[in-house]
Design a protein around this nucleic acid. Structure first.
Length: 213
DNA sequence: ATAGGGATTCTC
DNA sequence: AGAATCCCTATT
């Protein structure tokens, strides 16, 4: 059962936290299904956020960020890595959440094969935003995909036991990665969220904390 | 039409 | 610490 549109209609920083524990499902007709648990996210807000692609206003690339929530925003960085984002709603309010890391769920073997590491069961197969798309087989052709309906790429609510485990472990926050160019205060905003001590985190959080602290 | 740069990852 | 690599945005 896919998460409905209403789930995404909230401030992007709230959405970034709400997505932790959710399941990102990749259904490829040829390769089959794999899915992962979202364990790390970052929020990118509207034009005021100097780290966000929306800082240039509505451009061809960022236009998806200005649309309704619950759609995928996939783009290329550094000429080689594809990054997956979840657009926040409502329509007209730009914002997107970068999926920085996912943990194992379904189709680990398929994900390992896509990573070029057949047979690996490392929990860190998708520990990093570029690795997430590589492991899940997410390409630019999926930009704009409606994540609220079962299809090639969609999102599901956290399984019961996952939600329970996350509640026990807690959420850590920190500054977003690789956005020094944005300057103060945007580079320091604690808009990176992670499942505390999860093995699939992309890299250590410099300081521990709780949302809102 | 062209130049500057990046929400990364891997290797030296 | 540095390269790989190309699309996007801004500027001329």
């Amino acid at each position: 059962m896919a998460l409905g549109r209403a789930f995404f209609d909230r401030p992007v920083v709230d959405l970034a936290q709400a997505l932790l524990g959710c399941v990102v499902v990749r259904d490829d007709p040829a390769a089959g299904r794999c899915s992962g648990l979202i364990v790390e996210t970052e929020a990118y807000d509207g034009p005021d956020d100097r780290a966000s692609h929306a800082r240039f206003g509505r451009t061809p690339r960022s236009s998806i960020m200005f649309g309704p929530g619950g759609r995928a925003y996939v783009y290329l960085v550094y000429g080689m890595h594809r990054l997956l984002n979840v657009v926040a709603g409502p329509d007209g309010a730009p914002g997107a959440v970068l999926v920085r890391a996912v943990g194992h769920h379904e189709g680990v073997a398929l994900m390992a094969a896509r990573r070029g590491q057949p047979g690996s069961t490392s929990p860190r197969l998708a520990a990093g935003p570029g690795l997430v798309t590589q492991a899940l087989g997410v390409g630019l052709e999926l930009n704009g995909t409606d994540l609220t309906r079962q299809g090639p790429l969609w999102l599901a609510a956290p399984p019961r036991e996952v939600a329970a485990a996350l509640a026990v472990d807690g959420i850590v926050t920190g500054p977003r990665v690789g956005v020094a160019y944005a300057g103060s205060p945007w580079a320091e905003r604690p808009w990176r969220f992670g499942w505390r001590d999860h093995p699939a985190l992309s890299r250590p959080f410099p300081r521990s904390g709780v949302p809102g602290a």
